[in-house]
Design a protein around this nucleic acid. Structure first.
Lengths: 137, 137
DNA sequence: ATGTATGCAAAACATTTGCACCTGG
DNA sequence: CCAGGTGCAAATGTTTTGCATACAT
């Protein structure tokens, strides 16, 4: 029962919020733009406004439920926050996204931040390239 | 004589292009949005259009003269491409940007890309935090 | 001279906001 | 019932485009 999860965050369990959460949880494509979410909801016959999608995703982000990324094309995408940090490897041809985590890189980052006396709040590493499939075609 | 540099790239050495290039080369603040560039040119008494700034920066990017970044606020900033790759450490309070390069991180990235069979085209690492000065105030 | 680049205004996008209506607890 | 949430349309901020004019070669 996801209604409970939302209420814990101080958010009413409304239909749009539940639908958006379900969509993010059950979709194969983990990374979606607001527009993607909106279109998919319409396709499912849900009557929702694009503004609401933005509002809900922003609230979810504030609540730590989702993470927002700005990939290099300038578009924002959202993904469910499953609690473990990870970085991204993206294919610029087909859009495939691979998530990875590398402890050595994480450690080096902590060292660098410390050398400069910063308090780290967030970090993101995007690697862009061409995946094996797209290299062949 | 920078006109030559532009001509080599197949770009006519026009006034707006020269001015924008100079601005990027001579400014202390290496990272600027299109709007920043536009305003600074106007302040210098240059009569230039914002559209031209965007066009020129985009051409410069295509020519490899500048690099475009999309920081997490969603704004694009441009910096002169001085030929050496580097990553960025940013203060979310005061906007300070520190450039760094860490060979271990670079090596780990190459390993990861290779493990997944990708051909790397680009990569960027942004670390966000609070700088020493802003921690005190 | 002539093809390219520019400035301006309008268009195109992505995202946010105001407001009257609706809904969950 | 009523605070908070929603849909719609309008506003915003950024970036792009169309077009007549101006400029570099």
């Amino acid at each position: 029962m996801e209604s409970q999860d939302l209420k814990k965050l101080g958010l009413k369990a409304t239909l749009p919020r539940l639908r958006i959460l379900q969509l993010l949880e059950n979709s194969l494509q983990r990374h979606k733009s607001a527009e993607d979410v909106y279109k998919e909801l319409l396709e499912c016959g849900e009557d929702v406004g694009l503004a609401t999608v933005y509002r809900v995703l922003t609230q979810f982000e504030a609540a730590g439920l989702v993470i927002r990324h700005h990939f290099e094309n300038g578009l924002s995408v959202f993904e469910l926050n499953e609690g473990y940090h990870h970085d991204h490897l993206l294919c610029i041809r087909c859009g495939k996204i691979i998530e990875f985590i590398d402890e050595k890189i994480e450690q080096q980052q902590r060292d660098i931040v410390q050398q400069h006396g910063f308090e780290i709040t967030d970090h993101c590493l995007y690697i862009y390239g061409i995946c094996p499939k797209c290299q062949k075609s």
